[in-house]
Nucleic acid binder design. Structure first.
Length: 952
RNA sequence: GCGCGCGUGGUGGAAUUGGCAGACACGCCAGACUUAGGAUCUGGUUCCGCAAGGAUUGGAGGUUCAAGUCCUCUCGCGCGCACCA
């Protein structure tokens, strides 16, 4: 702690106002149907004091959301308050402008660290989590953010995860209908799979359901029994799959694709291997197209949209069917077939071999006796590799021949079938046609194993055709020869479709979401397992009335090495009286964050995950009437109401995790009619990283971590907030600099001294050394005598209104750093004033209030009381407007250039004509030497901007 | 390798979108007040030059009366994806 003198008594001011705001519930947002307490500042501004609010009487909504934090044991780091300060400034600004602002905070509190701590110490994760939440709450409140704490939520709270489980049941009890192109209650499919459908009239026009029904009724009784459950379970949006998954032995759990980076776990960086396990999956792939297309409807950065597009990985192409030689004995039999996916069907004539992924199910059938041993060895080698090894060793192509051949459908050519691990089982069909001439990987492979390379695309002149992968003109390709690539694709796809040898296909990289974890500290699945008459296990959903399903208490939270979840240890919890058994997996941490923004709109609702009216008001566009304020201000800043969350601010690390998952859940809820919009987050901004003072990423090992508590202790919350915003643009990565904090701290000190009488401050400082109550201490502070109820001079008004204009425009554009510099310019000017007109001083405090709310409130209150006025609530005082006429100069400075070089600056009337400017410039003594004796070719005059004399 | 973004003083960053480059702040220098200054206030501070003047937005070209801003090439940095057929 530095021993330097305090710039102003923030240590008294800040706790005082935080307490006042909390007692007043000053920043509580009101839903339609809620009653606004008598005397609440929001109610006073909108004439709702003591009344019941309604969608008609409330001002337009503005929903400003922060990505809620995981309450870790280490507390807040300086990155958290960066986004929180930005949103808080905007929340306060929007309140002043005239919106009903929803600005909530909560806790993404399920997570691994609390569980790992429990494994080590035996302390229940809930105890750890609650302690961490308490610490985070203290830290966040010490920054004076205007959150509506009445809406606080935690994903670990049973009242919350009850509804997370409820949404899971909705996923479980829905399927994606291909005809209606949306999530649909599974009752429809169940109905179609029954003898006498009850609501056939609702779906008989749906070819998918009608077809399912027609096929079903033709089946035998025994078939029906088998098909019914299997069909339903295979169509659910939440389904069970037995497939190779990402198993992380170190963490003792499986992970989603999105949580594996370069073959290692995103959390901890531990190796991940492929292991076949029975797991719950969510059918996010059904939404691939909507998740992609709807990116065009939202206001996110291009880079973020691009990340999501890449992750979804849409590619258009064709599936082509190849027959395998020697797989029929008699002529009337069908050949065994392999389907490949290609984005370049136009190169089919150049397919000289075929490659299956080592895991492809046909490999066993087609491998010849002679090749069996090498093929099996290769398969073994592949499976033993972790994903990490597989990608690391990918530099050199490997593979083996199966001994079999396929027939190229376009030219009946016999081509060898290989297996190689450069073909992935999980993408496309797990098999490719290899066109070595026009695909880099195939080219490499063909060269290594000496396979034929045939040119079928002619590149533009001057380029080598070998390994040419771009568009060109088809050659050596029979009926498509001579066609440019795009046209050739169309023609050959049509040719294949006509002969049923292939079809146009769209493929996605996106995989279904692996949704179960072998952990303790997560939401238990509301699912039980039963056995049918034949002894086969099947699953069933718990009824909604059984929610929330709480996890059992355990002695030992340790994950297991065999993938059996820790919940399986709780025998009493596990086994139900009727012989059925509970699902023991838990949901991933992402589950709770998929819908928390919805819960905030109606956080205490016990009947429903969110009330319809509340959801519709905050997330919908229904209340799109902007002209509803009674303060007489014009409605220009009130843009059209946006669908969903108006502004969402958080880190970029969630680009393909939380943000993709939440969009998916939201779309399901939208399809099922539970929410009003197709997209949850209309505008999204990623705050940039804050680096250490040394320009490196902050980390304990580097010893460059800045603790917010220390900064607040030394400079105060207002200075901390201001510095976080003054560092640079919100979106940029930027280094921390403690000297910079001192800079904005000095600025706040100058603001203080602009308002406060110097002598009284000396008295205050002396009194501070003796023990007195804090409130009395602050009362020793008197206002500067120069502040008076007098008219402002034109110069003062101009300074003020230039500041209003800049701060307002910069807030609208989220340019906080330049808004602050505009206020610094104002203060640097105002500090020289002999007189300080009261209205000017008040207005400045309104501009400062969103940024440094404690200091602004203190001076605002003091200013009013000194002049015997009652202070209206600063947070709800209408935002000042600038008067453009006050900013107009009568005399302006105009640069005079000769051949584009500045030679002088002249003062002219703002109304100077082009001719006058020209004459003044030509007569200018400083410019003369540069054009005298030369021919003046022309004179560029831009009124109010500059004059440029072009001479040669 | 592919995609996206960014390069401005000693430092963080400004620049109404083509019109006085360097706002604001840090740092540094000088001065005032002071027992003192790590408080405060005043002045200075892109570089070269005593000056006149010249140069200057990673580098090289181009368009334009005029370029940090637009175009082409190039170098460097950051982020994302990465055998996705």
């Amino acid at each position: 702690m530095s021993s330097s003198r305090r710039q102003y008594p923030f240590h008294l001011i800040e706790p005082k106002w935080q307490k006042t705001w909390e007692e007043q519930q000053a920043f509580r947002a009101f839903n339609p149907g809620e009653s606004v307490p008598e005397g609440h500042p929001f109610g006073i501004r909108y004439d709702l004091s003591g009344k019941i609010a309604s969608a008609e009487t409330l001002p337009p909504k503005f929903y400003i959301l922060d990505m809620f934090p995981y309450p870790s044991g280490t507390g807040l780091h300086v990155g958290h308050p960066e986004g929180y300060t930005a949103t808080d400034i905007l929340a306060r600004y929007r309140r002043a402008v005239g919106f009903n602002v929803l600005h909530p905070m909560g806790w993404d509190s399920f997570g691994l660290p609390a569980e790992q701590y429990a494994v080590k110490t035996g302390q229940h994760p809930r105890v750890t989590t609650e302690a961490n939440i308490a610490n985070f709450t203290r830290q966040i409140k010490s920054l004076g953010f205007s959150y509506d704490w009445s809406r606080e939520l935690a994903t670990t709270d049973p009242d919350y995860f009850k509804w997370t489980q409820w949404i899971f049941l909705k996923l479980y009890n829905s399927y994606f209908d291909p005809e209606w192109n949306k999530a649909t209650p599974i009752e429809f499919l169940e109905d179609a799979l029954s003898e006498q459908p009850k609501f056939k009239n609702k779906w008989q026009e749906n070819p998918f359901l009608a077809g399912t029904h027609n096929a079903y009724v033709k089946m035998s009784a025994k078939e029906k029994e088998l098909v019914r459950r299997r069909t339903l379970d295979n169509k659910r949006l939440a389904y069970v799959s037995e497939a190779p998954v990402n198993w992380c032995p170190e963490l003792g759990t499986v992970l989603a694709n999105e949580e594996v980076i370069d073959g290692k776990s995103e959390v901890g960086g531990f190796p991940v291997i492929r292991k076949p396990m029975r797991q719950w999956m969510l059918r996010i792939t059904a939404y691939a197209e909507k998740l992609l297309a709807d990116l065009d409807t939202i206001d996110w950065t291009d880079s973020l949209k691009e990340m999501q597009r890449n992750w979804i990985g849409r590619s258009e192409g064709a599936e082509v069917v190849f027959e395998i030689d020697g797989t029929r004995i008699r002529a009337e039999e069908e050949y065994e077939k392999v389907t490949v996916f290609t984005t370049r069907p136009d190169t089919l004539f150049g397919a000289t071999y075929m490659v299956l992924s080592p895991e492809h199910k046909l490999v066993r059938n087609i491998t010849t006796q002679a090749q069996r041993q090498v093929v099996e060895e290769y398969q073994k080698l592949t499976t033993s590799k972790s994903d990490l090894e597989r990608t690391e060793l990918a530099k050199e192509k490997t593979g083996v021949f199966t001994g079999s051949f396929a027939t190229n459908p376009v030219n009946r050519q016999r081509i060898p079938i290989w297996i190689a691990d450069y073909v992935l089982a999980s993408y496309g069909t797990g098999a490719i046609m290899a066109v070595p001439a026009h695909d880099e990987r195939d080219f490499e492979f063909a060269k290594k194993f000496d396979l034929p390379i045939v040119q079928v695309v002619e590149p533009p002149a001057g380029k080598d055709w070998q390994g040419f992968t771009d568009d060109g003109v088809a050659v050596n390709s029979d009926f498509i020869s001579g066609l440019p690539t795009q046209e050739a694709k169309k023609q050959i796809t049509k040719w294949l479709e006509d002969r049923r040898l292939g079809k146009k296909t769209i493929n996605y990289k996106l995989r279904d979401w692996l949704f179960s974890r072998q952990r303790y500290w997560g939401e238990p699945f509301p699912i039980i397992w039963k056995k049918d008459a034949a002894g086969n296990l099947y699953h069933e959903a718990l009824p909604e009335s059984a929610l929330p399903l709480l996890p059992p208490s355990l002695e030992d939270y340790k994950p297991t090495t065999d993938g059996r979840p820790p919940l399986a240890r709780a025998k009493d919890w596990l086994n139900l009286p009727d012989g059925s058994v509970r699902e023991t997996n838990t949901m991933p941490q992402w589950a709770g964050s998929c819908w928390y923004y919805l819960r905030y709109t109606d956080a205490k609702n016990a009947q429903s995950f969110v009330g319809k009216e509340a959801e519709n008001y905050w997330m919908g566009t229904v209340a799109a009437v902007c002209d509803r304020r009674n303060d007489g201000a014009d409605t220009a800043p009130l843009q059209k109401i946006t669908p969903g969350v108006d502004l969402y601010v958080g880190g970029t690390e969630h680009a393909v995790l939380h943000l993709l998952y939440a969009r998916f859940w939201h779309k399901v809820l939208f399809d099922l009619g539970y929410v009003s919009t197709a997209e949850p987050f209309y505008k999204l901004v990623n705050q940039g990283l804050i680096l250490g003072e040394d320009g490196q990423k902050m980390s304990k090992s580097r010893g460059n971590v800045v603790n917010p508590d220390d900064v607040i202790g030394e400079y105060g919350a207002d200075a901390f907030r201001l510095y976080e915003m003054f560092m640079g643009p919100l979106q940029d990565t930027k280094p921390w600099n403690t000297k910079g904090v001192e800079g904005v701290y000095r600025f706040l000190g100058r603001v203080w001294r602009l308002f406060v009488d110097e002598k009284s401050e000396t008295a205050f400082e002396q009194a501070e050394t003796t023990a007195q109550s804090k409130d009395e201490l602050l009362d020793l502070i008197l206002l500067d005598g120069a502040i008076a109820e007098i008219d402002a001079t034109p110069a003062q008004l101009k300074t003020l209104h230039a500041c209003i204009k800049k701060v307002t425009e910069d807030l609208d554009g989220m340019r906080f750093n330049t808004a602050i510099s505009a206020m610094m310019v104002f203060i640097n000017e105002a500090i020289t004033w002999q007189t300080k007109p009261l209205p000017v001083m008040k207005t400045f405090l309104q501009l400062l209030a969103p940024f440094a709310p404690h200091l602004a409130e203190e001076l605002w209150a003091r200013l009013h009381s000194t002049f015997g006025q009652t202070a209206p609530s600063l947070g709800y005082a209408p935002w000042p407007k600038f008067d453009a006429t006050l900013l107009v100069e009568s005399v302006i400075e105009i640069p005079v250039q000769v051949n584009g070089k500045l030679r002088d600056v002249i003062k002219v009337s703002v109304n100077a004509t082009v001719a006058e400017l020209e004459a003044l410039a030509l007569a200018n003594e400083k410019a003369k030497p540069y054009h005298e004796g030369k021919t003046i070719k022309k004179i560029i005059v831009v009124p109010k901007k500059l004059v440029n004399i072009v001479a040669a």
